[in-house]
């Protein structure tokens, strides 16, 4: 009798363990692959599955986007398309449309200004962003994490500031 009770207890524990594992598996939602110029409009997990060279930023404007660069590199095809030469040394000609950041967080020409609401819980991790104006541009964003990434080689001093006629030092 004691053995039977022990067996029943063991079976119950096993069933509970399997149920817990199934519940965890159900909650571990897969990551959605991203492409150049995607606008990630739904909170969730996203992943870069290969190296990409893009001429428009990858962007999102909602809270709760977790972007895993998957150890890959997101490159801009050109750091930016500023109008050269600047109109004058003191008034460099520029245009927000011409900035090309690798990843833009809560930023866009239609969402620019003092009334923009904050987003939160953004996370970008595990990869590289290079050859852009900004690797990552973050606007009206709180309680978010950016780690660990290689964000090197985004518009060098010589490239940017000399061409802009000293507008930025």
């Amino acid at each position: 009798m004691r053995d039977f009770k022990y067996f029943n207890n063991l079976r119950s524990i096993s069933c509970l363990t399997i149920l817990a594992w199934l519940a965890m598996a159900a909650n571990a939602s897969p990551s959605t692959p991203v492409s150049c110029s995607d606008n990630l409009s739904v909170p969730g997990k996203y992943v870069l599955e290969s190296d990409l060279t893009c001429d428009k930023p990858l962007e999102f404007n909602v809270s709760g986007v977790h972007l895993d660069l998957g150890g890959h590199t997101l490159s801009c095809s050109s750091p930016e398309q500023w109008q050269f030469p600047p109109a004058s040394a003191d008034t460099p000609t520029n245009d927000l449309n011409k900035w090309i950041s690798g990843i833009e967080v809560n930023f866009g020409l239609n969402t620019f200004g003092p009334s923009v609401a904050n987003i939160s819980n953004a996370e970008i991790t595990n990869g590289s962003v290079t050859n852009c104006h900004d690797g990552i541009f973050v606007y009206h964003t709180v309680d978010s994490k950016f780690r660990p990434m290689d964000l090197s080689g985004n518009l060098s001093d010589a490239d940017c500031c000399a061409a802009r006629g000293g507008g930025v030092t």
Partner: peptide, 8 residues
């Protein structure tokens, strides 16, 4: 330009 730029 930069690696990360934060505004507000």
């Amino acid at each position: 330009p930069g690696g990360v730029e934060l505004l507000e």
